[in-house]
């Protein structure tokens, strides 16, 4: 596990985080390639099932990126998303996977720097946490 490269899924809302990710591109701000973005119209669209499935399928970390507080294009989708993420964190703690694998982050469309910085920080955090324990269970299952 020395060269552990985590796989991280970022659900990004169209109006802010996804635009910020493109902005990071325009500005050529590097961040780890471990982060893979899935575009959603609003962070509030991210279902608990999407996050749990991502972890079940073997993602090492998942984060939901929405607009800044009060800036949600759909009024309060980001607040709903944050509540859902908090709930999932608790659940993950309870079942022993660890809530720290899931995060909610906020940024505005113009914050390319924030996007790149967040992607870097979360990747480093997950790298320290090590691989998602579900994966070894899955592997054992496949082996059996």
């Amino acid at each position: 596990m020395e060269n552990f490269e985590p796989v991280i899924v970022a659900f990004c809302c169209h109006y802010c985080a996804y635009t910020a990710a493109d902005m990071a591109g325009s500005k050529r701000l590097c961040y780890p390639p471990n982060v893979k973005i899935i575009k959603v119209p609003c962070s509030g669209k991210v279902d608990a099932i999407h996050i749990m499935k991502a972890l079940e399928m073997g993602a090492d970390g998942v984060y939901v990126a929405g607009c800044l507080d009060g800036d949600c294009h759909f009024k309060n989708g980001n607040i709903g998303a944050a509540k859902r993420v908090a709930y999932i964190k608790k659940l993950l703690d309870e079942i022993g996977i660890g809530g720290e694998r899931v995060e909610m982050v906020l940024m505005s469309a113009g914050m390319g720097e924030r996007f790149a910085q967040t992607a870097t920080e979360i990747t480093e955090k997950i790298r320290k946490l090590g691989p998602n324990p579900v994966k070894s269970v899955n592997e054992a299952k496949t082996a059996a």
């Binding site: 796989v7 899924v9 893979k36 899935i38 959603v40 119209p41 669209k45 279902d47 099932i49 999407h50 499935k53 991502a54 399928m57 073997g58 993602a59 994966k135 899955n138 496949t142």
Partner: peptide, 18 residues
């Protein structure tokens, strides 16, 4: 943005991992 499409993206990404 139907659920099965989002889950399909996850499957497309993570099939190598599993």
């Amino acid at each position: 943005y139907e659920d099965d499409q989002i889950l399909a993206k996850l499957a497309g990404l993570l099939e190598r991992v599993n």
